[in-house]
């Protein structure tokens, strides 16, 4: 059983994304254990990429700020080593294929595994291209997390059947970012996932309020929030730890209360 399974053992999971190095790696390092203490069941560490084509403006800008601040993949690995001395919360990297490929796919994944990372999410690697990364992840005991989208339809079963870790269910068309309404037919997407796998299913893209979290937690095994957290980091800068932990606490509570 992978570590990620543990994330789904405390009721509905709350999964928190942040961009490493925004506002600084030092804050990221302190933020991760604080978010875990506040109830985050799984942390997605975003490794910034110069041209994040699946992201909306909030995370695009966070990526740009982090890179301008001198963040690199190696400095993020060093930070993960320090974080792992403080918390055993399950963690996955979320980044783009070129960050992994250019580092050397095997070198990136083996280093991730040896530092205690649990999985990898690459939004620009669909099912057809996953073997190049998934085969290496399997060898090193990392879960390669697949995404499904409102346009996936007949692909959902195929993708879910080979899923490990969890299935990342993209709630809406478009890129990441806060939305006032989510109109996709989430129930039928999740129904198809459940028919095909026992791996848990978490919903992300567009979720920001406790009400939305409670609503989505009613449908899936977990809720993923990115842009709303990244927005708080942007707004409060180096003072972001208290508001982010407070936010995480309220979102986890919403997931549990339903």
């Amino acid at each position: 059983m992978s570590n990620i399974r543990k994330s789904f053992e405390n009721g509905k999971a709350f999964i928190a994304f942040l961009t490493c190095g925004d506002p600084s790696l030092e804050i990221t390092e302190r933020l991760v254990p604080a978010m875990a203490d506040a109830g985050a069941d799984l942390i997605e560490l975003g490794i910034p990429f110069s041209d994040p084509t699946a992201e909306g403006p909030v995370i695009q800008e966070a990526n740009a700020r982090a890179l301008a601040g001198g963040v690199t993949t190696d400095r993020i690995f060093d930070m993960v080593a320090r974080i792992r001395q403080k918390t055993d919360v399950p963690m996955v990297f979320m980044t783009y294929a070129n960050v992994v490929f250019s580092y050397g796919t095997e070198r990136f994944i083996s280093r991730s595994a040896s530092l205690g990372m649990d999985g990898l999410i690459l939004p620009d690697v669909p099912y057809e291209e996953k073997e190049e990364f998934d085969s290496v992840c399997r060898r090193y005991g990392l879960d390669f997390i697949p995404l499904i989208a409102p346009t996936s339809h007949d692909r959902i079963r195929t993708i879910a059947r080979e899923a490990s870790g969890f299935v990342y269910c993209v709630s809406s068309l478009g890129v990441t970012g806060v939305r006032s309404q989510i109109t996709s037919d989430i129930d039928s997407m999740i129904g198809l996932v459940r028919e095909s796998t026992s791996v848990p299913c978490a919903i992300g893209f567009g979720i920001s309020t406790p009400d939305q979290a409670a609503h989505m937690a009613g449908k899936a095994d977990g809720v993923i929030v990115g842009s709303a957290i990244v927005k708080l980091c942007a707004q409060y800068g180096s003072e972001c730890i208290p508001p982010v932990t407070e936010y995480v606490r309220s979102m986890k509570k919403a997931c549990l209360d339903l």
Partner: peptide, 22 residues
């Protein structure tokens, strides 16, 4: 699995949202 290769180059590295359209 992977399609549209020219040697090692090419492929379909895009978000799942676009796959059915492609």
């Amino acid at each position: 699995m992977s399609k549209g290769r020219f040697g090692i180059h090419g492929g379909q590295y895009i978000p799942e949202t676009l796959m059915n359209a492609i």
